[in-house]
């Protein structure tokens, strides 16, 4: 982790990381507003991927975060989130890199969807091995909005994890809601306890304030 990332961590802490209680009562107006607004995925129209690409991204995301005793990526709408982000949030270069990566993976697999799950997973692991020197893996390279130089496999993993942890399903059925109403700093961590869900991703929008320095 470099100093800037550490510092940004600290800056964000000043404000707390914002966890949403399941049962927190919103004011009537807020309920109306948010209710009318609905889920992000219900508001977007997806037109970027072909049917085959959709199936491929769905298979890849489920291999990354599978359904276990808790819901997995497909249950949580991760494939739709990925398509929405690649089409509307990525810049042109990032989108081109993602689409190229997806096409190359399919070509290399000689039809990704024709492979069985073990082979599909091995292909993802191979991509990750080949990207081993990417900055994306550097410890602490997380307190930024986005790593525009991330290789395709890293773009894909990050979107998958965000799409899962920030989804209603991931936040409520995998992560734990933070009980609100009081602060208690001396709570025993239970062996199976998961971290609290978060309201907005803890990412600084800050530009670099100093040269990065590795830990």
């Amino acid at each position: 982790m470099n100093r800037r990332e550490f510092l940004q961590c600290a800056a964000l802490l000043t404000a707390g990381s914002g966890v949403v209680p399941d049962t927190w009562a919103l004011t009537l107006e807020q309920q109306t507003y948010l209710g009318a607004r609905g889920s992000y995925l219900d508001r977007v129209t997806l037109t970027l991927f072909s049917g085959e690409q959709r199936a491929m991204v769905a298979a890849m995301s489920e291999l990354t975060i599978p359904r276990t005793d808790t819901p997995g990526a497909i249950d949580a709408g991760v494939p739709q989130f990925i398509e929405a982000m690649v089409s509307a949030w990525f810049n042109d270069e990032e989108r081109a890199n993602f689409m190229k990566g997806l096409a190359e993976l399919d070509r290399r697999a000689n039809g990704y969807l024709r492979q069985d799950a073990d082979q599909q997973l091995a292909l993802l692991e191979a991509l990750e091995d080949e990207a081993s020197d990417a900055e994306w893996f550097r410890m602490g390279n997380t307190m930024r909005i986005w790593d525009s130089n991330a290789p395709f496999i890293c773009q894909f993993k990050e979107l998958t994890i965000l799409g899962f942890m920030l989804s209603e399903t991931g936040a409520r059925q995998f992560l734990t809601p933070n009980p609100m109403g009081a602060f208690d700093g001396s709570v025993s961590l239970q062996p199976e306890q998961r971290t609290y869900s978060t309201q907005t991703p803890m990412r600084s929008v800050s530009p670099p304030i100093s040269a990065a320095e590795d830990l």
């Binding site: 807020q30 508001r43 907005t200």
Partner: peptide, 11 residues
């Protein structure tokens, strides 16, 4: 108290 999944781009 907005939920991440209600926000554009999940926030």
């Amino acid at each position: 108290h907005a939920n991440s999944w209600n926000l554009d781009y999940y926030g």
